[in-house]
Design a protein around this nucleic acid. Structure first.
Lengths: 152, 152
DNA sequence: TCGATATAGATTGTACGCAATTGAATTGTA
DNA sequence: TACAATTCAATTGCGTACAATCTATATCGA
């Protein structure tokens, strides 16, 4: 995947995302390891720290993940003592995820992580912000195209 | 991960990459499925189509993957008939990967994929190019910071 | 030359990611 | 009310990622 290769642009872009996403995951690891968390587990907790008591589906909608990924991940978070899983009384199909006291406490220990990772980036804040928006927009387009493709 | 949440920027950026990378993988799937390939397998073939006869390590260096990931992936590509794996005569530690006739032929069937995915993006070419470079630069910084961290 | 060191790839174990299927609960509708 | 369609989470199976470890080969230094 050298710079000189005449590969089509979308391949280059896709690979850039593919590899930078793994690089980010590795960058977070030294900070998450001491907390006993993986990156996907951390992202789920970020969601719950924002809004507790969501259903599995609501978490999945926010993170673009399905129950096949979330169910075992949530079971691991539960086994670690960070969350509780309980069927919704009103609708027994749904499983509501709520933080334990331990899970809430963990938030404080994780507070410094984004700043420390931010230091590794060495880019001005407004550039980071612009990049984030651009990438999110691109993701939106891909989702839209995919759902169009699925309909036909 | 709502827009209104006050999450730190690096978390936002990391999640943007994390989710767009999966979105890309899903976007490629309809085109790769008929060829019997996964996205990582496709990327390995892209490398080999550029330069045949690389060692496992050389492929890993280009893709930022290690033998733990590549060995089973390459075995599947071999089982599918696309590549051959053979110990290097000069240095028996190394395994050289070469395309079979079938693997070379596959290239033509895959030629249209990046153009089709490109259509789903709906962004001007120079914007895509700029984005690709920016993301690659960011990945470089992360790798550098990570190796600095590993040394200390 | 021989032993220590380094390197390449394979293996093991854990954790995603996701398609496909299943089973239970709910909803829509006749 | 009955019952088909829908929804939600769980499960199964496969393919990555990656740390840690192992084995075989190669290289370096005394």
């Amino acid at each position: 995947m050298t710079k000189s290769s005449p590969l089509a642009l979308s391949n280059q872009l896709c690979f850039a995302f593919y590899s930078v996403s793994h690089a980010f995951s590795r960058a977070y690891r030294p900070f998450l390891d001491p907390l006993g968390l993986t990156y996907p587990q951390y992202v789920v907790l970020l969601v719950l720290w924002e809004q507790d008591g969501l259903t599995v589906r609501e978490i999945g909608d926010r993170l673009f993940l399905d129950s096949g990924t979330l169910t075992p991940l949530l079971k691991r978070l539960e086994a670690a003592g960070h969350i509780r899983r309980a069927r919704d009384k009103k609708d027994e199909r749904q499983v509501r995820i709520s933080l334990t006291e331990m899970g809430r406490t963990l938030r404080e220990n994780a507070e410094e992580i984004p700043r420390q990772v931010g230091c590794m980036l060495g880019l001005p804040v407004d550039e980071l912000r612009a990049l984030t928006e651009q990438v999110a927009k691109l993701r939106g387009r891909l989702h839209d195209s995919a759902s169009l493709l699925a309909k036909s």
